[in-house]
Design a protein around this nucleic acid. Structure first.
Lengths: 236, 236
DNA sequence: GCTGACAACATTGTCAACAAAAAATCACAG
DNA sequence: CTGTGATTTTTTGTTGACAATGTTGTCAGC
């Protein structure tokens, strides 16, 4: 066969993506709110969307369900989770336990390189915000929190923050006022200032306030459903 | 044969256990230290042990791996995880983030019934301790922390605590001094006293101290044994 | 006797066919 | 036109066979 001109299929590359990558992709799609709560995730559609066998999809859905990002109903299929108001409360309560401490650690351990990464990230956030790229703004806004966990150098906490941030996107999709940006990037700026001054307590306090701000902007009433074309969403 | 054999006949008739139950059973076996770090979990043995098909086992192992309780090596099989010293540090760091806050919430929200449950649990712990039932003592000692998370009424945090407690059992199995009981139940008693007086701050502080005590009794700088890294062990 | 290749074996990974369940469709009576 | 029940269609769940990979044991060759 040699260096074939890749005559295979429409997919130019043999992307053998494993379960973790699929999970990550779906996580991001949910954070971006391209996958609204309640969206049906049928195995066939996902197989087509990712170009993998049913087994991979099945395992990915199981992993997503174990993180409570997907609701796996026996014999009925998988749906993007629709957190209840009570679950929303629990998610924020848990974020308030973890993330102020993460911020504190991040400030303690941030290298100069980390500071640059954070600053660059904030620039991206501002840009997305000012150009009204809602989707980018939402994604970057969530990624800031994940970035802090990375800087904090604790992979256990990192994984938890990832899960909580993703679920928060779902919660905002359900209980958030439409059009209102969830994370105000001014808050993120203030937290970053605590990095400049290496003020750990301030970082923790600001993170607490920040999370409470987000929570206060939620309206804990009626759930919402949605559906969309999976193939179109993951094409790109 | 071996460590899992005795569970076979118990489940032989109750064929219909799902992945979550299997995961729970393995969690408990690990907490009890019946499954030491590095133990090979071959699919065939587990199929026989639980009397289910290979698919169920496969999914269960995937779930366990996603909680980092099992090390899933491609084409090589599943092994009970052997946390490194660094991972141990991260686990305790994360427990220190979460559990003092869990304790605080638990004190705030504990009903009279919860207090009774906690007291009964402590009695069991004492009994196991005095009768030198090491296995029971270890299990109950871990369950105390899980119980607090239940009382705190936050299922998200509960799931995380469960995972962290289980991983801590592995860590103690590797880095703990043999024969030394990990959780001193006096610590648990003191925490319970904070429930009596409804002193939330004391509960949080005592929990912090308690976790630090456990961590201090580990030899995290010592040899990282376990069945995994023979190369590192016999290097030079 | 030791080393490296090779074969036999065991275990894991994947796939396709099949069974079971739920959803959708349709026929039909009211 | 509408509600109900049976049938078809779609989707999920499971089993078993087969392929791919790793491991172990054996044996020629030096």
């Amino acid at each position: 066969m040699g260096t074939l001109g890749n005559t295979a299929e429409q997919d130019a590359r043999d992307d053998e993506l494993d379960e973790e990558e699929i999970v990550e992709r779906i996580f991001e799609a949910i954070i971006d709110q391209r996958l609204p709560p309640g969206t049906k995730l049928s195995e066939a559609s996902l197989c087509e969307a990712f170009g993998v066998g049913r087994m991979r999809i099945r395992q990915s859905l199981l992993l997503l369900a174990s993180r409570e990002v997907v609701d796996l109903q026996p014999n009925r299929g998988a749906y993007v989770a629709s957190p209840s108001a009570e679950q929303a409360r629990e998610v924020f309560e848990t974020r308030l336990m973890i993330e102020p401490n993460v911020a504190r650690l991040a400030v303690e351990r941030a290298s100069d390189d980390d500071l640059i990464r954070l600053e660059q990230h904030l620039k991206l956030e501002h840009a997305a915000h000012h150009t009204a790229k809602r989707r980018d703004a939402i994604r970057l806004s969530g990624q800031f929190h994940v970035l802090l966990a990375e800087v904090a150098g604790n992979s256990v906490a990192l994984r938890m923050v990832k899960e909580l941030v993703t679920r928060t996107s779902l919660i905002i999709g359900i209980f958030g006022s439409p059009g209102v940006s969830n994370c105000r990037d001014e808050d993120h700026d203030e937290i970053f200032n605590a990095f400049r001054t290496r003020d750990t307590d301030a970082a923790a306090r600001l993170m607490s306030d920040h999370l409470r701000h987000i929570q206060e902007h939620l309206e804990l009433s009626g759930p919402a459903e949605g559906a969309s074309d999976l193939v179109a969403i993951f094409k790109r």
